[in-house]
């Protein structure tokens, strides 16, 4: 049973144990466009351990996507330190960051972000292409991943020939094909109806059951309910970090 650390602890003061997957230490992110500066994240400290299922909730514009981009090494914070599996992201070169995104992280986006010109299995194999996996193996693994999301019959279909729910399942297959330890999903059900949402969420649940760490962004309470832990943010600050009733831990107001 995982013990959820007190979020007021700074990472350095944590008791000895396995490195957390994610350790954000007083992270700030300020966007400056012209003379206007937008503080999208302020003093965010957050630790997520191996195998956790965390929902991040908050109203529109509160900084959820900004947080996920930093977690996914797609963007860099303007303040603070981010350690991913114990390694300081700040010290990594652009190529190393690309490798981290490729091997350790699987992304699922609200807009699916599939390449329209490629069919389902060619979309799913993309991370394997950049990982340097040989072609025949890529096809096998991509088709197996599509099987896992229930799309074995749709491997040759292009995104335009699939429903929204099916497209998002292709995106989930793409996120899991490299067997990453961390899955980051930004409102994966935001564009889906209830049935498709349920499909995608049950896939997330399966991934969690197989030992992966999952961070899911949503503004729907019903979606957040599937997670073990909910982190609420407002105006770029963490306002609440709760464990589910069966988990130990505490929440801060």
């Amino acid at each position: 049973m995982t013990v959820i650390p007190d979020i007021t602890d700074i990472p350095e003061s944590r008791p000895e144990g396995p490195e957390p997957v994610i350790a954000l230490d007083h992270i700030g992110k300020t966007y400056t466009s012209g003379s206007l500066a937008v503080e999208a994240l302020r003093d965010v400290s957050l630790t997520i351990d191996q195998g956790e299922y965390v929902a991040i909730m908050g109203p529109s514009g509160s900084g959820k996507s900004t947080l996920m981009h930093i977690l996914g090494c797609l963007d860099v914070p303007t303040k603070g330190r981010y350690r991913l599996a114990g390694e300081d992201v700040d010290d990594m070169t652009e190529d190393e960051l690309a490798d981290v995104r490729n091997r350790r992280i699987g992304f699922v986006f609200q807009q699916f972000n599939l390449l329209p010109s490629l069919n389902a299995w060619r979309n799913v194999e993309l991370p394997l292409v950049y990982a340097g996996v040989p072609r025949h193996e890529r096809r096998e693994r991509a088709i197996a991943a599509l099987g896992r999301v229930g799309l074995a019959q749709r491997v040759e279909h292009r995104p335009g020939e699939l429903s929204g729910g099916q497209q998002q399942r292709v995106a989930v297959a793409r996120a899991l094909v490299t067997e990453p330890a961390l899955i980051l999903a930004d409102e994966p059900t935001g564009n889906l109806d209830t049935t498709s949402s349920a499909d995608v969420l049950s896939l997330m649940g399966e991934l969690h059951d197989s030992g992966r760490t999952i961070v899911l962004i949503t503004h729907e309470a019903s979606v957040a309910a599937v997670a073990q832990r909910t982190v609420r943010i407002l105006d770029g600050r963490i306002t609440e970090d709760s464990a589910r009733p069966m988990m130990q831990g505490r929440s801060t107001a």
Binding site: G72, D95, A98, D99, F107, Y130, A131, R174
Partner: peptide, 9 residues
């Protein structure tokens, strides 16, 4: 997207 999936510059 390609960069998010691990493409190097």
């Amino acid at each position: 997207l390609r960069k998010a999936l691990g493409a190097k510059p």
